[in-house]
């Protein structure tokens, strides 16, 4: 019973924490309660640790989630991806750069123009088909473009921007 309630409580707690932080002062974030999964650095105004903004999963989910179904070059058939819109994350950290560099756990890194976030509705997917994605399946964070809803996105340039196992984002 407790394990069933926990995923529900954690985001709520995170949301409250974030709200409190915003009320207290725009330039600070609550410290992650859990193990951080994403560190944002660079041209940002909101931080919680040494000029960086660290997020655990609950904090990310508290930013507000969205979902869409799409196929990708790495899956068989379309899947439902659920996560935080990149635009919301950038707003949350007060990002002022024009592009970001996303770096993965395996040190793969890719450049993404900030305008992609709003133009295409790029998400930092946490879940695939309702379940959290583990590292062994492109987790914990997988940058997904809605490939199926815009034929323009089915191109090498967007494939290479879709990094998985994302751990760090630097705003430039």
């Amino acid at each position: 019973m407790i394990s069933a309630v926990r995923p529900l409580v954690a985001p709520l707690f995170g949301a409250f924490a974030l709200l409190a932080a915003n009320l207290a002062g725009a330039a600070s974030l609550p410290d992650p309660a859990d193990k951080p999964i994403l560190t944002v650095t660079g041209k940002i105004s909101v931080t919680n640790k040494d000029g960086a903004a660290q997020f655990d999963r609950a904090m990310l989910e508290a930013l507000g989630e969205t979902s869409f179904s799409t196929s990708t070059p790495w899956h068989d058939g379309p899947h439902k991806f659920e996560g935080v819109p990149l635009a919301k994350l950038l707003d949350a950290v007060g990002a002022s750069g024009d592009h970001i560099v996303a770096t993965a756990l395996n040190d793969y890194s890719t450049n993404i123009p900030v305008e992609d976030a709003r133009k295409f509705g790029v998400i930092l997917a946490l879940k695939r088909d309702g379940g959290y994605m583990p590292v062994s399946d492109k987790g914990p964070i997988f940058i997904v473009y809605p490939f199926d809803s815009n034929p323009e996105l089915k191109a090498q340039v967007y494939y290479k921007r879709s990094a998985w196992q994302v751990a760090r984002i630097e705003v430039k």
């Binding site: 790495w74 756990l105 395996n106 583990p134 590292v135 062994s136 399946d137 492109k138 998985w164 196992q165």
Partner: peptide, 9 residues
Amino acid sequence: DILRNRLEV
């Protein structure tokens, strides 16, 4: 895990 992810890919 990263290696297992590669296997999935």
